[in-house]
């Protein structure tokens, strides 16, 4: 079973005035362990596609099925819970909680899942070690560089044991060294821990590292290029 499957996914903004077709019948299947980049020019519908498969937005037409669940059948509160249990998010602007330390930010999602505090702390520590921030666990986001904040964001996304991680332009605010480090880390997680990653990106460095590149143009899939299989496939 595909982790993500979209059928005829269509999104029209401003339907009643000047309609803007952000997505135009997108059919896409993403399997477990994929390391997929959604690419395309600005306005091609990358973020809209990610928002819909992340349950943050609803399509005008078509369906988005995630782990066998048609997201359109879920209420708002069910969607929030679905996201909590199944999806990890990494945002372009990191979006960490500024008043919490790195370890508190990572543990926060697990605490919302209702896991015991001890387990939350232990796993948060392990995740931060994995992303190379063992010495920064008690730092607040303001004391971390952009790259370090994005690593915390990745650790937070992984903390809930999601079925996949959605990352919207994760390297857009990072310098080249931080970008390379982040990509190495995510590729490593994909390879060793079979974590499924779906990115939207403009960044050629990210595109170069992706195993599959889906190109969107004007809300349609213009090209779907599977470059290499996952080593454990």
């Amino acid at each position: 079973m595909a982790v993500i499957e979209t059928k005829g996914l269509t999104k029209v903004y401003n339907k009643d005035q000047v309609p803007v077709h952000a997505l135009n019948g997108v059919d896409l299947k993403i399997e477990k362990r994929e390391f997929t980049a959604i690419v395309g020019p600005s306005g091609s519908g990358k973020t809209t596609l990610l928002n819909i498969i992340g349950g943050l937005d609803s399509p005008t037409d078509g369906t988005a099925i995630v782990q066998g669940t048609d997201l359109s059948t879920l209420s708002d509160s069910e969607l929030i819970n679905f996201r909590l249990q199944h999806i990890g998010f990494v945002f372009q602007a990191y979006n960490l909680i500024p008043v919490l330390t790195a370890i508190e930010n990572v543990a926060f999602v697990m605490q919302m899942q209702g896991r015991p505090q001890k387990e939350c702390n232990k796993k948060s520590r392990t995740l931060l070690e994995e992303v190379g921030l063992a010495d920064k666990i008690n730092k607040r986001p303001s004391a971390l560089s952009g790259g370090q904040q994005q690593r915390v964001a990745v650790a937070r996304a992984l903390s809930s044991n999601p079925d996949f991680v959605l990352a919207d332009e994760p390297t857009a605010n990072l310098d080249s060294v931080s970008t390379a480090d982040l990509l190495d880390m995510m590729a490593d997680l994909n390879e060793k821990e079979n974590m499924t990653f779906v990115f939207s990106t403009h960044d050629q460095r990210v595109i170069d590292r992706a195993r599959r590149v889906v190109t969107l143009v004007d809300g349609k899939i213009a090209k779907d290029d599977v470059r290499e299989e996952h080593p454990n496939a």
């Binding site: 992340g54 943050l56 708002d76 509160s77 929030i80 819970n81 996201r83 909590l84 249990q85 998010f89 945002f91 602007a93 979006n95 909680i97 500024p98 926060f108 999602v109 919302m112 899942q113 937070r156 809930s160």
Partner: peptide
Amino acid sequence: TRELGMLMAIGMNKRR
């Protein structure tokens, strides 16, 4: 607003 949106995105329900 953005941070609150993020909290909802990562799974914080309306009650919380």
